[in-house]
């Protein structure tokens, strides 16, 4: 019940963003709002088993969203660095690849997903496989320096941020 309600609210926010600029009640017309309420209730009923599958509501805390927005700064910086790194490697063709393993010790599904996607978008690393039980990540590293790397070397301090956001 609670999960259906929260899913419906999330869907309603997306619907409002899609139909912005149609009328006078703030930015929306009354017909759009009524239709949006109905449609998002339907979407909440059909999508309730997926969005909060583990009955885990810790992402509803607004402080975590503020941390998430603050996280975008270092993330975009690391992403720009990654692209310059890849540019260097495309032009010179100098690679030294390998697959290494790190243990970030993150518990939640959302946290490990965020870390995996952040790693994929940042310098020289690509998440290949995930151990379902221990949440260990296997990472393809384009320029292997050590065979048993520290977490800091690969993740740019992302796990600290993600622990604050998602745990």
């Amino acid at each position: 019940m609670k999960s259906a309600l929260i899913t419906a609210v999330a869907a309603f926010v997306l619907y409002l963003i899609l139909t912005v600029g149609t009328g006078n009640i703030l930015l929306w017309s009354s017909a759009e709002i009524i239709a949006g309420v109905f449609l998002s209730i339907v979407a909440g009923i059909f999508g309730r088993k997926l969005l909060f599958k583990n009955e885990d509501y810790r992402m509803l805390d607004p402080v975590r969203w503020l941390y998430f927005i603050a996280y975008l700064g270092p993330f975009l910086f690391a992403m720009a660095k990654a692209n310059i790194d890849v540019a260097y490697r495309v032009i010179t063709g100098r690679i030294n690849p390998g697959i290494v393993k790190i243990s970030p010790n993150l518990k939640t599904d959302f946290g490990i997903t965020m870390l995996g996607n952040s790693i994929t978008l940042t310098p020289g690393t690509l998440s290949v496989e995930i151990d379902e039980k221990t949440n260990d990540l296997y990472i393809h590293w384009i320029n292997v320096k050590h065979k048993e790397p520290e977490i800091e070397e690969i993740c740019n301090g992302f796990p600290k941020w993600i622990r604050r956001i998602a745990e």
């Binding site: 030294n96 690849p97 390998g98 697959i99 393993k101 995996g116 998440s127 496989e129 393809h140 065979k147």
Partner: peptide
């Protein structure tokens, strides 16, 4: 991520790799 995982499981391993923990 899905493509990389599928490639490793279907037996395409990285060329010139120094280490392959997986």
């Amino acid at each position: 991520h899905a493509i990389a995982r599928a490639a490793h499981r279907s037996g395409v391993y990285p060329k010139r790799a120094v280490v392959d923990k997986l």
